[in-house]
């Protein structure tokens, strides 16, 4: 059976194609302001990647902030459930999952079958989501992709006072004016962000193994700060963490079918 999982997120829309439970294709596109066409585009990209035709897909499963726009979906999977399943799919030993995307941060405690036991969410405030790092990158005029590697090159701990993405912009600009090197500023930014995500994880309890999915998992600086804050050596991250929820949605549908 061929299933497409689509995650229509705030920033990117991601699609994966699963054949008998194995990933055979992926596609991602910017969501922009027209969610429906982003859904179509990302699906087309994933079909092309898999080398199959739209008619070959048996069922579509949707998740993400814009899941209502996935018109052909046979099933709409709540984001928490999708991320829990994804973690279990990639790492059966996972007990805690965190998903940090452009506009949200979540932490979920799961059992050995990937069932949700408990969860905590942060949304609607950019300070606790990937948007925070993006805004800071703009403020200090560094490419977003550069932020993480830069942070890794610093071993300073500069505390940040602002707890708001907007106020933090002025704070980092102030640091630049005070001639603080950008590596140290980048580290401060990631530390601040990681401490917010960690306190959310602590609410559900830190149970190893810890899995991270979502676009921010691609940022090595963030992952480094996260490990340090949590006091653990390893965070499990799948190959393409941004596709986590899409995979989870597809797996949920497969199991129910």
């Amino acid at each position: 059976m061929i299933i497409a999982g689509i995650d229509c997120g705030a920033k990117n829309t991601k699609s994966v194609i699963l054949r008998d439970g194995k990933i055979i294709g992926k596609g991602m596109t910017l969501t922009g302001f027209d969610q429906a066409s982003a859904v179509k585009e990302s699906l087309d990209a994933s079909l092309k990647d898999a080398g199959i035709d739209a008619r070959d897909v048996d069922k579509i499963s949707g998740t993400g902030a814009g899941m209502e726009e996935i018109k052909d979906a046979a099933m709409k999977v709540n984001e928490i459930r999708a991320m829990a399943k994804a973690a279990n799919y990639f790492f059966p030993s996972a007990r805690t999952v965190t998903d940090v995307g452009a506009e949200m941060g979540r932490a979920v405690k799961i059992d050995e079958r990937g069932k949700v036991i408990d969860f905590a969410i942060n949304e609607k405030c950019a300070a606790g989501a990937g948007a925070f790092i993006e805004a800071m990158a703009r403020a200090i005029e560094v490419e977003l992709e550069e932020m993480g590697p830069m942070a890794l090159r610093s071993d300073k701990s500069i505390p940040m006072n602002a707890q708001c993405a907007i106020f933090a912009e002025s704070e980092v600009v102030g640091l630049i004016h005070a001639k603080t090197v950008k590596e140290d500023i980048s580290k401060a930014i990631h530390d601040a962000m990681a401490s917010r995500i960690v306190s959310m994880i602590r609410r559900i309890g830190v149970n190893e193994d810890i899995v991270m999915i979502g676009g921010v998992a691609l940022n090595p600086g963030f992952v480094g700060c996260l490990k340090r804050e949590l006091g653990i050596d390893r965070v499990y991250i799948p190959a393409d963490p941004a596709f986590g929820a899409a995979v989870g949605a597809a797996v949920v549908l497969k199991e129910e079918a």
Binding site: S199, R202, R203, G205
Partner: peptide
């Protein structure tokens, strides 16, 4: 700060 005292 209060997060740890407020499990879901």
């Amino acid at each position: 700060e209060c997060g740890p005292c407020k499990p879901p």
